[in-house]
Write a protein that binds this DNA or RNA. Structure first.
Lengths: 166, 166
DNA sequence: ACGCGGTGATTGAAAGCTAAAGAAGTGGTC
DNA sequence: GACCACTTCTTTAGCTTTCAATCACCGCGT
């Protein structure tokens, strides 16, 4: 057992360097893409991701909760986001036929068109900032690392690995 | 020269997997640390980073612009952040003697104490979410990759100075 | 000394995010 | 069929971030 009075395991110099590089790179990249999309498509990066996801969904529509889970954001945040996208006419909310509580977000033609125009510039920005600078070994490694981290932070389904508890 | 009418180089399936993993991992980790610090120290992750940087600076003070550059945020954002931290009594603004336009942010004893109490939990959270899940090769690789990305997005040759921060 | 472009920092309004609470609907149990 | 716990989604209020001014000061050139 650990207890609260133990000396914490501080980061080593090398770990600190990695952590600092991580923080700097992710803030810079995030800000960079946000600005790029805000300039070229008048929306933040997260909203763009939502439209992309919708565009790939069957019949361009998806349940709110599903969309939120996929984008790793809260339902509350999604609600606000979809409200703004709806104001711009890029998305429409519609009732879910099978569950009266449910809503579907539907990507309109206008939304699809905005996406079509923004996509090339965005992909170019991602390539230029990330993929073009890494060897294919580094790309592979990055993918593995990020999958591990994402997996570890996934809010777990309690019943998933404990089937006897439901 | 490229031109706007070329077919863009879309991401390959493998690149898309990497990019998606990156986006998921970084949003999850960012949110996770934000929540951890909001719960345990009543401040967002960025603010915590500012206090950490100040605590390592000579005489626990730093010029606003230097602090903003180091944290990779805009001066405007820093201004608002420091205002907030000042309200809580964790930081104080003071005039810079050598340049009447300048301001120093100074980490108060109260601010230092908050940091001292929050640090162990925060380090533990970072370890648990990131370092504990990666092999030392992966840690090394992550550091290299993030340094490349950060370097590429650096507005200019920033970071040459600040010797006390290595 | 004067003007002038550039730098350091702040401000205010609007956009976006979070947490907590609320409204509506579902589904199982007795 | 009435209850009860849970799910889905929205709303509210407060906080943070962004963007575009704004203000004050620096130092350089003339």
């Amino acid at each position: 057992m650990t207890n609260d009075h133990e000396e914490p395991r501080w980061l080593s110099d090398e770990e600190q360097r990695v952590w600092r590089a991580y923080l700097q790179a992710t803030t810079l990249l995030d800000d960079h893409l946000d600005r790029q999309l805000q300039r070229d498509a008048r929306m933040p990066h997260v909203y763009y991701g939502l439209l992309v996801t919708l565009s790939a969904a069957p019949r361009r529509r998806m349940r709110m909760t599903e969309l939120a889970k996929y984008a790793k954001i809260t339902r509350s945040r999604l609600s606000h986001a979809i409200a703004r996208l709806e104001q711009r006419g890029w998305v429409i909310r519609e009732d879910c036929p099978s569950d009266k509580r449910g809503q579907n977000a539907f990507l309109t033609d206008a939304g699809f068109e905005v996406l079509r125009q923004a996509a090339p510039g965005h992909v170019a920005a991602v390539r230029h900032a990330l993929f073009d600078r890494l060897t294919s070994e580094q790309q592979k490694s990055l993918g593995e690392i990020m999958e591990i981290v994402a997996e570890g932070l996934q809010p777990k389904e309690v019943g998933a690995d404990l089937p006897w508890l439901r």
